[in-house]
Computed example of a mutant assay.
Amino acid sequence: MSTLASPQIIYVSNLPYEATNDAIEAAFEKEGFEVEHIELIKKGSGTRTKACGLAAVSLPNGLELADVCKKMDGKSCFGRPMIVRLDKFCGDDLAYTPKPGAV
């Protein structure tokens, strides 16, 4: 009997509303990270949903998520610096600035 491992998930915010799964995946692959699945979070219900600039990104097991966050934080997606965190419920830092040279 095999045991399925739970996916490793990190959260990406500060995405423009027009961000796509392909653009987010390309940003991660550019830095050498394979992506298993991306879920763009939307608010609302039924036909009245809209993007809210947040995505849950599933990564393969075996990666050190803190290292992924550190390397990906501030990288560009659609011309905006991504904020990459382990917990989607962290409050955004209003004084956030991307790392020099990250974009």
Rank of each mutant, 00 (worst) to 15 (best):
G62M: 11
K42R: 14
Y11I: 05
E31G: 05
K43V: 11
A19N: 03
M72A: 02
G74P: 05
I38A: 02
N21Q: 13
L59M: 09
P7L: 06
E39H: 14
A19V: 12
S76I: 02
P16Y: 00
R48Y: 13
L63H: 06
L65V: 05
L59R: 07
P81A: 06
E25P: 00
T20S: 11
C77W: 05
G32L: 00
E34L: 14
A26W: 02
K42N: 08
G32P: 08
S45K: 10
K50A: 14
E39I: 11
L59A: 07
E36Y: 05
K43E: 09
D22C: 05
C52Q: 14
P60Y: 10
C52W: 02
G46N: 02
M72F: 02
V84Q: 03
G62D: 09
L54Y: 07
A51V: 04
Y17W: 09
V57Q: 04
K42G: 01
E29P: 03
C52F: 05
C52H: 05
N14Q: 08
I41L: 13
K75G: 01
K42T: 15
Y11R: 04
A23G: 10
G53L: 06
L4Q: 11
I24N: 00
P81M: 11
L15G: 02
S13W: 00
T49M: 15
N61D: 09
S76F: 03
N21I: 14
I83Y: 01
L54P: 03
E34G: 04
I24R: 07
P16C: 07
P16K: 13
A56S: 12
E31H: 14
P81F: 06
I83W: 00
E36C: 09
L63I: 04
L65E: 08
M72G: 01
G32F: 05
I10G: 04
C52A: 02
L65K: 04
E34A: 14
K71P: 00
P81N: 05
S76V: 03
K71H: 07
M82F: 00
S6D: 11
F28P: 04
E31C: 08
E25K: 15
C77Y: 03
